[in-house]
Design a protein around this nucleic acid. Sequence first.
DNA 1: CGTCTATTTGAATGTACTCAAAAGCGGTGG
DNA 2: CCACCGCTTTTGAGTACATTCAAATAGACG
Lengths: 194, 194
Amino acid sequence: MDATLLLSHIDRHIQLDTEEIALFLSLLQPKTLKRKAFLLTQGEICHAEHFILKGCLRVYTIDDNGFEHIVMFGVEEWWVGDLYSFLTQTPTQYFIDALEDTEILQISRQNLDKLYQQVPKFERFFRILFQNAFIAQQQRIQQNLSNTAEMRYQDFITRYPQLEQRLSQKQVAAYLGITPVFLSMLRKKRQFKK
Amino acid sequence: MDATLLLSHIDRHIQLDTEEIALFLSLLQPKTLKRKAFLLTQGEICHAEHFILKGCLRVYTIDDNGFEHIVMFGVEEWWVGDLYSFLTQTPTQYFIDALEDTEILQISRQNLDKLYQQVPKFERFFRILFQNAFIAQQQRIQQNLSNTAEMRYQDFITRYPQLEQRLSQKQVAAYLGITPVFLSMLRKKRQFKK
DNA sequence: CGTCTATTTGAATGTACTCAAAAGCGGTGG
DNA sequence: CCACCGCTTTTGAGTACATTCAAATAGACG
């Protein structure tokens, strides 16, 4: 498996020498997932963080009424996992599965700890990563508070136009927090407006 | 101003020697805010991150219809600011003001950069901080997707019982994403149930 | 005390959901 | 390669959750 994408992603934030790169790569494990395969299911402990080389994953919960709610999508160059379960080693409430055939690189809890110890620059790398993720989530929260479903859909397709292409409406609805039926109605309404 | 609270907060995640502590403290600036005073208003650039020693702040937007939406509260031992504006040095979309008389310690962009350079352990500190903030936000997003207003209110008061005491219903409503009128109705309903 | 803001209450409205049925689409096997 | 099965999307009617508007009451603060 080819880690070029991951290395260039890291190179954007910190500079590593060849030794550090070698160490880092030795701590990773590749994995491929067929469409619809699960990476994590509710009740399991999340043992690794996953970097996506190719494909598309979704992180979601299933509520008491059986409805799916997507907390995040992951595509190329994104990290996914359940951080809470990963850090506390407690059972997760999330499911993660593949919407497309997907290739990932995994780093386990022990290996990540080792990485932080041996290459402290990675503290900086993940600090920046979480910082950016925090900002993105805060914007999503603010949007959910301020906007109607129609505005949120509008924003979603302008913010992630290429992602929307890859998803079914059902997935988009589960991310926006509305029913697929209602999303269908919104789309119909939009056609007239344009 | 007394930085004990901040130092013990930091000590939970990283260990500093006396020199490092001295350097860190030299990079901070104290500030007091009277109730209703603004720390940041829409259009300004956020020049510092703020650690709360005492008091209560709110971070919020005002939407096109003039409604306030609170993205986070800050009380003792929390950091607040607009990270996006802080990092990109672009105008913020948020307001931050004090709900109580408040004492904070500020660290400017330049001083934080200096801190990262001179005491890399702070990369780790903020990595952990953002990591935890990310988890908390993800839980909030998941809740907003899954739950009705009534459940969200229930969860809020069990999760932050002491915070709710300090807030008006209007503030709680603006955080939950509902109108004060509707929150009042929910509270009335709850009284019967108990 | 008086003013200003927050909260409560009630009626009408709107946004989004439920249920149900039909149509569309994609993958799989014969 | 077509036919069928299952899942997604569309459409419509009725419903529920939450808002708007308005007015009255309560509370906070100077």
